[in-house]
Amino acid sequence: MPEPTAQDYQLDPELQSSVILTSLEWVKGWGRRNALWPVSFGLACCAMEMMAVAATKYDIDRFGAGVFRASPRQSDVMIVAGTVTHKMAPRVRRLYDQMPDPKYVIAMGACTVGGGPYVKHGYHVVQGVDLVVPVDIYLPGCPPRPEALIDAFRKLQHRISEKRGDTLRFDAVEKNREDQRRKAAGGEAAG
């Protein structure tokens, strides 16, 4: 639904130029998307490019996402920058759980998107971080250039203002897990 404007309420023409009417939700979304605080969570190679984005030349602060926090409890977007391994996966999940709502995840790099170069023989690499946490933005590249990460942030901001929340692969995995759990519980009850 489009946001209501001053015209919709048939305000006095003089007031129309000085009054903005909108929903509180929209204002909240506007504030949220322009002040993203990422958790500084470097896993591997991609973390170097994440640092480059925060540093001199690329300066993500221009887009309001430069306040890298060391604590997940103070941040609202997690950039999973680097390979997630099976040993690391529960910790990634816990960090995600520690973040306050609303929270967003950018899967940065081929490894987090789907295992990357380690997809076939890498026994210890999780085939995509979306098997562990729901992902909002997938950013391919090995590693992605800093420009690409800036683009990912812009896309995330767009998503936030659109209030979209479709995390398909994670949802499918969760549903699968839930089914298995139910089946196991059902089997035990039957047995």
Binding site: A44, T83, M88, P117, Y118, G122, Y123, H124, V125
Partner: peptide, 24 residues
């Protein structure tokens, strides 16, 4: 926490295909 099994991959892939893993 970042064990990416590059030694195993080196046994599975030809030398020239294994080289990119060395970067990492």
């Amino acid at each position: 926490n970042l064990h990416r099994s590059s030694e195993k991959i080196g046994e599975e892939l030809p030398y020239y295909q294994w080289l990119p893993y060395v970067d990492r």
